[in-house]
Design a binder for these strands. Sequence first.
DNA 1: CTCCGATTCGTACTTAGTACGAGACGCTAC
DNA 2: GTAGCGTCTCGTACTAAGTACGAATCGGAG
Lengths: 215, 215
Amino acid sequence: MAGPRVRLSRERVLRAALEIADTHGLSSLTIRSLAEALGVKPMSVYYHVANKEEILDGIVDLVFSELYVPTVGADWESEIRRRAHSARQVLKAHPWAIPLLESRTTPGEATLRHHDAVLGTLRAGGFSRELTAHAYALIDAFVYGFAVQEASLPFEGPDSVGEVAEPIMALMAEGAYPHMVDMAESYYTQPGYDFADEFEFGLTLILDGLAKAAR
Amino acid sequence: MAGPRVRLSRERVLRAALEIADTHGLSSLTIRSLAEALGVKPMSVYYHVANKEEILDGIVDLVFSELYVPTVGADWESEIRRRAHSARQVLKAHPWAIPLLESRTTPGEATLRHHDAVLGTLRAGGFSRELTAHAYALIDAFVYGFAVQEASLPFEGPDSVGEVAEPIMALMAEGAYPHMVDMAESYYTQPGYDFADEFEFGLTLILDGLAKAAR
DNA sequence: CTCCGATTCGTACTTAGTACGAGACGCTAC
DNA sequence: GTAGCGTCTCGTACTAAGTACGAATCGGAG
């Protein structure tokens, strides 16, 4: 059953944890399931990480490491745009990571490197420190907030509307939420609607606004 | 020891749960702690809620019910601005709720009513359905994302910088994150800096952009 | 081959969610 | 008042999961 006995390592532990979260969801990531995936006994994991918190911090940083890192010095607008799209992509691929990003207050290396690059790109793009701070907060709030919305959308496509719980539909039908119903019926459920497009609109509006402010 | 024996109810259960989360943090909210706060035995709680998930859904909706609900028909910009500030305030008061807002996919009544009012305000303000969808996504992403940032900021004021873990500071000192260090030293830690101001900047930029798009 | 630090694991305690069914309460009809 | 019956509360106990503690094992250096 066992292979040629591979040594454990913090790296392998985190990789395996990431994989479990990706394939079976965050709630399936337990020390025991992790140990099993590694072909090892639970307590062995604890030699490489202090506790589960550290594992969570670790996989969040792994997710961060997947983000496109903007090039300091290149055209700020396209770099920031690219990294925003990248972030959306990555968070969509690891939706379980979204609730974690906040609770983790111990940023990892990839996380710090990433933020540093964003700040650098803006500064090199001619943004004052003040405007950089504004821009940084605004862009990240949007990107992150958008990912959250996308992950928790009750209906995210023309097909999945039916999945909304019945009591809600009942209330909706009763006319309790007229505007939601109107939007749902006349817009969100129309063929061709894609929530992802909202991202482009918002990002463009923000970048345009920042560009104007930077002048 | 017991008072005049007050009946339990879903309402009382949720109120008590909210209070525990507010005062001792979300992790202290367990069925047992909740039962004790209610002067009751753990399993009694389960007559009023199906499981802990339902409790979480419930307190999230309670938090939503604290938000300012915009008046449909009134000036959209000031209404939306007011509700944005309200949201920030509320989320700041219940930071534990932030990670929850996403994971909960079963919106409560207050949540739905709130969203309906926002949509209605925009529509009544002359926004097309398309622009309403854009605006709604953009504004909420920003408001929510901002709250997240605020809650997880490594340093959120001139004083608390020292709280950042040492390894990070060490790396920073080594010059690994020059732009972060620069911003931290020359801007974030300057007296008078308040992260909250970033909210105003972002919100105004967004509302201005939307106003222009609405014309 | 022996010794030693680096790893791995066995055992077991603790906290937490909650299934199941019995018991207590209090109101209603006789 | 009292029997009867929903409504509500709780006693018991099982399961899952994190992890403390120290023993067992492994693999390379001398």
